[in-house]
Design a protein around this nucleic acid. Structure first.
Lengths: 237, 237
DNA sequence: CGGAGTATTGATCCCATTCAAGAACTGTGG
DNA sequence: CCACAGTTCTTGAATGGGATCAATACTCCG
């Protein structure tokens, strides 16, 4: 049985026993956080890197008048900015969406892992590049698509990412988001999120209750979203 | 007299003579492109990395129905995805906005530079992290702000980035964008871009003709945009 | 000079917001 | 176990930011 981190990196490269040992070593300092806790605050100096083990976290930027944009989700197996220690301060905050476990990894540990295996090194780069690619995709969704399409797209993405790390039960997965948070992700008010969800429900595309999302018609949802998974870079080179 | 690339990296770290020589070495294979040419197309395998020397390029994603989102601008001194060779295919295209000069850098050259100077290595990481940070900022602008504020923000950003590399003449700089391209950047139709520009002109915030933007009241523009340059990570560590 | 791209302007429409109020869930303490 | 408070969700009505449609200028360039 492999961990989400191993599963995720295996989407990109083959890992040997040594690599797996390195990854396990990175995940020795496990932290437990409750929903609402911050892993790191905006403007704080980055002290360590996190690897998500269980539960969800989210990246966010706050605006002066109390608005908030969620700029990314960290799912189990995600590596949170391997090289962030290069920066003086965080340009965004990262908070826990649900109770979660993550591994805190020091700069030196990252550098050591980076230097000890070329596959790990490339895996860390890959992880950063995928994060950036997801941002471009989200930007495109916000800039060019309607609410209905944007929502379809984020559901397709999260479903696929959860599937990859073995955390989706076929067409169903844990989605620990309120309608408010979903709105801050795709640039909608909670009211409109609610109406869009209802439209999807009425069209038998999804079911969403008790923090679980069931995708009833993935093909149709992908069509609506014009979802193409290339931007997640899951093919091995 | 320093190059835009040196100026830009100097925002982050001190470069010694050796570092400057390495950078000069990276820029030996200079390419000239005309406006409209693609540096690289979406889905193409990345063959090399580019360093912008003169002129502007832009990153874009195309949608099936002919819509387009511009996801970033490459100004002189910008390094275009130093580690992109890790990926199998590009998730977006990069095109020339104006006639431009860029240096084509091979994977091996990047790795050699990366290994030969820790400051260069950190500079490359920094460059990638800033690109990602800019994407988060753009996403936030698209998701949370009105047209007028979004436009003020992109103007503040581009003005500052041009200033850093020594290409702004005080409050004025070359901005080789059509209203259509500006619209594809901030998620507006050309018609609305036009109206928003006129509003800014009428309020004596800017002048914009002949592909030159003059910022008449930078403080007011920053206020409108709630512009805070932290996300560009210009402080040295 | 002609044609294509670019900028401008007006009229109308619509997607999403805002405002407001009520219902359904949480979780907590007595 | 219930009462109660605080989120979260839901629904309706009115409003508005920006899109769409359409027509007219302007600019650049071969």
């Amino acid at each position: 049985m492999s961990t989400p981190l191993e599963r995720r990196l295996s989407c990109f490269t083959d890992l040997d026993e040594n690599d797996r040992a390195i990854l396990t070593g990175l995940c020795s300092d496990v932290r437990t956080l409750s929903a609402e806790d911050d892993l790191i605050e905006e403007s704080a100096p980055p002290k360590q890197v996190f690897i998500q083990l269980e539960g969800w976290a989210f990246r966010y930027k706050l605006l002066p008048e109390g608005k908030r944009q969620i700029t990314g989700y960290l799912l189990p197996g995600d590596i949170c900015d391997p090289f962030v220690f290069v920066l003086k301060r965080m340009d965004h905050g990262i908070g826990a969406l649900s109770d979660l476990k993550c591994a805190a990894v020091s700069k030196d540990q990252i550098l050591e892992a980076f230097n000890s295996s070329p596959r790990i090194a490339r895996g860390l780069w890959w992880s950063s590049l995928v994060d950036e690619s997801i941002l471009r995709q989200w930007l495109t969704n916000l800039g060019q698509r309607f609410a209905y399409e944007r929502m379809a797209h984020i559901f397709c993405e999260l479903w696929l990412r959860m599937t990859i790390v073995g955390l989706a039960d076929e067409d169903e997965f844990h989605l620990p988001l309120t309608q408010n948070q979903l709105g801050d992700t795709i640039g909608l008010t909670p009211v409109h999120v609610n109406r869009t969800l209802q439209r999807m429900r009425s069209e038998s595309l999804i079911e969403f209750e008790q923090r679980r999302l069931k995708i009833c018609d993935i093909d149709k949802l992908k069509d609506i979203a014009e979802f193409n998974s290339d931007y997640l870079h899951l093919e091995r080179r």
